[in-house]
């Protein structure tokens, strides 16, 4: 597979490490009420879609960016590649 890195252009998927579902970005607040239930969901419950999947890839043999790759699990077609940092910010994460 080829991942079109937003900064570096097309790179072979062999340069990357796969982590999993991009919702790992949405880490709950550990100090909030109901944190245990929220973390149970966060750590263990995943969708396993046949089709479009947003997932985290790490450019370990490259610039060490974490990317959010939108990939079709049936065809491996990649429709978008974003810097995970930008996605995290757009989902309300900051410092």
């Amino acid at each position: 597979m080829i991942i079109n890195h937003p900064l570096l252009g097309p790179c072979d998927a062999q340069e990357f490490i796969y982590k999993g579902d991009a919702r790992l970005i949405d880490r709950p607040d550990g100090m909030s009420d109901g944190a245990e239930a929220a973390f149970y969901d966060y750590a263990y419950l995943r969708d396993n879609p046949a089709g479009e999947h947003r997932e985290l890839w790490f450019h370990e043999q490259g610039d060490r960016s974490w990317l959010v790759v939108t990939r079709n699990t049936l065809t491996h077609e990649i429709t978008s590649v974003e810097l995970a940092r930008d996605v995290a910010r757009s989902r309300g994460r900051s410092a």
Partner: peptide, 11 residues
């Protein structure tokens, strides 16, 4: 790096 970029991007 995951924590830095994905969890707390503005630290």
């Amino acid at each position: 790096e995951f924590a830095r970029q994905c969890l707390w991007p503005d630290m």
